[in-house]
Design a protein around this nucleic acid. Sequence first.
DNA 1: ATCCTCCCCTAC
DNA 2: TAAGGTAGGGGAGGAT
Length: 1116
Amino acid sequence: MSFNSSRSADSGSKSKRSFNSISSNRSGNSNSSDNSKKKKTTQKTLGMAWGSNSRSASRSSFRNSPFSDFGSYMAVKNQKLQEQFEAEATSSSNSGSSNGKPIFQGVSIFVDGFTVPSSQELKGYMLKHGGRFENYFSRHRVTHIICSNLPDSKIKNLRSFSAGLPVVKPAWLLDSVGANKLLSWVPYQLDQVVGETHNQPKLSSFFALKSSAVSVGSTNYVTGQENSEIEDPSLKGGTINDADSSGPCGYTDHSKPCSRDWDDSVHGNSTSVRSGEVTCHDGKFSEGNLSEPSNCLMLDKGSVDDLDQPSPCPPSASVVSDNAKKSTSSAITGPSKQHHSTLVDPNFVENYFKKSRLHFIGTWRSRYRKRFPSSKYSSSIVNASAQRTSVIHVDMDCFFVSVVIRNHPELRDKPVAVCHSDNPRGTAEISSANYPARDYGVRAGIFVRDAKALCPHLTIFPYDFEAYEEVADQLYDILHKHCNRIQAVSCDEAFIEVTDSEVEDPQFLASVIRKEIVETTGCTASAGISGNLLMARLATKVAKPNGQCCIPSEKVDDYLNDLPIKSLPGIGRVLEEKLKRKQIQTCGQLRMIPKESLQKEFGVKTGDMLWNYSRGVDNRLVGVIQESKSVGAEVNWGVRFNDMKDCQHFLMNLCKEVSLRLQGCAVEGRTFTLKIKKRRNDAEEPVKYMGCGDCENLSHSMTVPMATDDVDIIRRLTTQLFGSFHIDVKDIRGMGLQVSKLESVDTAKQGHERNSIRSWLASASASSKQQHEIGSPAKESASGEIDKQHIDESLGRFSTDLMGPAVQIGTNPSNFEAPSNQDFALPDLGDLDLGVVESLPPDLFSEINDIYDGKLINLMSKKKGKSVAQERVQVALKEGGGPFCCDPACVNENCVVDKEEKYPVDKIQSGPSNVGISTEVPNKLDFMPSSLSQVDTSVLQQLPEELRVDILQVLPAHRQPECVSDINLDPPSKAKKSPENQASVSSKELWAGNPPEWVAMFKHSNCYIFRILADMYYRSGSTGRLSAILQCTLSESQTLLDASNDGWDDAICCLCDLLKQYIKLRVETDIEEIYVCFRLLKRFTTKSKLLSQVYNVIFPHLQASVGESYGGSLNI
DNA sequence: ATCCTCCCCTAC
DNA sequence: TAAGGTAGGGGAGGAT
Ligand SMILES: Nc1ccn([C@H]2C[C@H](O)[C@@H](COP(=O)(O)OP(=O)(O)OP(=O)(O)O)O2)c(=O)n1
Ligand SMILES: [Mg+2]
Ligand SMILES: [Mg+2]
């Protein structure tokens, strides 16, 4: 199941998709689908339980482990988890410093529910007298449960989870304090519990227990499980079955049988909307003098409530709680106090996103884009703007709640909210609350503990992202059926534009759509109808819940007059507060302020918006669907690092995420912005569990010349960006990576074609037009002359025949037309440099051969034996013969570096990014060259010793930067004895007092030095060292290309030079480097003004014609 | 003037 | 326990 396939899927059919765009790319694991499908079917009526699933199991590092291995691993890990748990700071004690007599020594209480005195006071008593206070229940740590009173529904569960622990009234503590000794708790037992034995010793967890505070039967809505079947994971840990058999979470499959059955059941119930009877009964609305039925159509709130809802399925299957899984699916990286942080879970980023509601709604749009690739209708909208139009705004009522209680009609009139947790003391956020709950003040975004305080009998349901996705799809299918001008706002909300000619009665259309929505989804929607986006949206607010409302233009002013400014979209907390300080609370008051004042105070655009909105004016058009401007990922929860390694690991995963999202959107980006949330100095631990608390928001960005989606490049960039923060990783509370300056990956570059030579050439020629826009022509032609000279000079030593004669291009950009991809003319076969072509890696050769319909190979065989063979340097690189290392931390000689590991996570431990730990060794990746005199000593230090010696011997010959003398260098005697070392002597003599002209080509000092060395080694036949220094150059070039705007000319020069050297020398062990060169140049040169240099590597004789056809942009 | 970077604000 | 993301708009201030 790939992203592209889902994009091409017919919108009517339920294609496999994932709400988490990453997961579909990553897992590609169809093995789990059978399993998960079954599970889903049975889960349906209960909603998904806490999360983990076969997908996550299959992605875990244990995916291939046999059961037994996994099981024993889990056993060990749970033991460790418990040990951690023991040490965890979720409990408070005051050992040693208690100022009261330690009468509660050995007593550890957990307070359940409301108590008198409050749990905080009890905590105070405990700490004062040597006892412990547990915020969260654990049978291992807690010795007594303190409880004043519990509703009956809780008692049963309390018995269960208490597992024989005494449940005692607070008076026990008070009396003990009063008596100044520990009294027996027996007389203080809670009456309701006395005499009972625990006949249900197994319970999901305290967490799960809490969720059944309000129960229907004994079903726990949160876990979707009969309580009696739940095991306490904190005791036993996850079972193997847990890890292997639960259903997927990020959602993919919409064609499951259940949805069919459900659809059928819906259609079995006939419904009707009696739109003729509607009037505006809404109180708010009436107060606004808008109650005329003729002008304002509003369905009676009750009228749709009466519509039949799909018949509820009885709760059927139970699902193993995810609690166990969570404790098992994370590996332990070391002792830690946080159980849900980056410290514990190496897959934190991925796992986190799977459970984040905000991630779900935040990424919904990109999924929608794939379902309904846009721009079909956006142009017609512009045209249609001449006509009179109405806007309908449709928004699902308390979306998340509606969806999860579709099959619980008995809860429709009871307060219900969706939340991760049902802990009445928890800091989990309410995602959505239904309207009965809102009557109690429960709102999206408040903590569950506050919600429970406002409404103690609030029923909490867990998330079911899969179901939200499914309903959203149904919603948009319906909308698209009725209208082709739709502007998606979110998964539960859209604007529809209708022209008067198309639809005579927008209100009737709205009622039809709403009826269809409730019939299809089992959830109600509300609609607002008005003349523009703003007023339609405001009308929806009036209409909710389950109603619709029209605000005709003549009623706009009246309606707005008393409307609180906060109700206007775009005015949030901050603007509201600022206006309030100016005594502005309503739109009517806002209208009194002249536009100029507003603009002066809030900025031009914002002032304009305020002025317009307060008058009901909104000039935005419906449906102008712009392509996305940025793609990013961030995590600001559970982010805690102890050391650089944790941090780097996290960052690299974030990069992977971002890279995959870019690829998922088929875009590449040029600007990378790393955001870091840094704990404020004065901020203590956040109120919210694992939250980021009060933070400073920092960001640094970097723009590279060539757009990319490549994870390795992104990682290098990100690493470099991170270094620029100079931040203590312990202060980091959140990080995000955003990519902007996006360019869409055109079809020619997609798929396997992407790295082919043909597409490279084609894209290069197509995009060469843009070269005119880059840089000034004067500068180009000037530097072109220099470049040519220098390159001739420099390359002459290696490969005089590779460069053809220079072509000075006459600049005539105005006449220039870039050939299209199709027009790209293949060079004549006779124009190819056969020596170079022959030396290409086999598959590159074969690719070119294919381009020429196989004629190339014939030509080659004819000319065989003539040319290049004798020019080749015979290289017989023995194993490890090239001491190379680009690893800052590694100075071992003979270090063979695996390409994949060039920038591994743990290599960036030192350097400026690691403030306060070790700044004396600069981070190589932080180096950004700017001038010839700037020699990066750290780079030099990373070189193998022998090469370093050579450099020091060479440098003084013409220009030795001062800082080189700082290098602490002990010339190894071994190096002196090496026969290869002779090269440096001769080279030194060669260059002494006579620096070659081409040195100016390498403005970047490292490349410059490397180039000198390469030349030296080449002359001396030191092939091992030559190979090593070429790799160093390649590595430097990569860094340059990725990171520097200034350095990419240098980098291109280096790479072209390198490529020629590699190819010409045919260093067989460096085949991979040739590929890297090619890839870099392909990526890079489509927009390079130095394009022709790359061309010349393969098509040197084409220079003149290329130069002509590509106008003045070429400088060779 | 216009662009760029580093923020802040807003909505779902 | 708990999963505070994502993307666009826009302002301030500096570089050009
Ligand atoms: N702070 C928020 C706001 C919204 N949502 C999610 C849950 C909502 O159900 C969904 C849609 O947002 P709405 O603003 O449309 O809110 P509701 O649909 O829940 O209620 P309403 O009836 O007011 O539209 O987005 C969320 O998780 N957290
Ligand atoms: Mg809604
Ligand atoms: Mg909404």
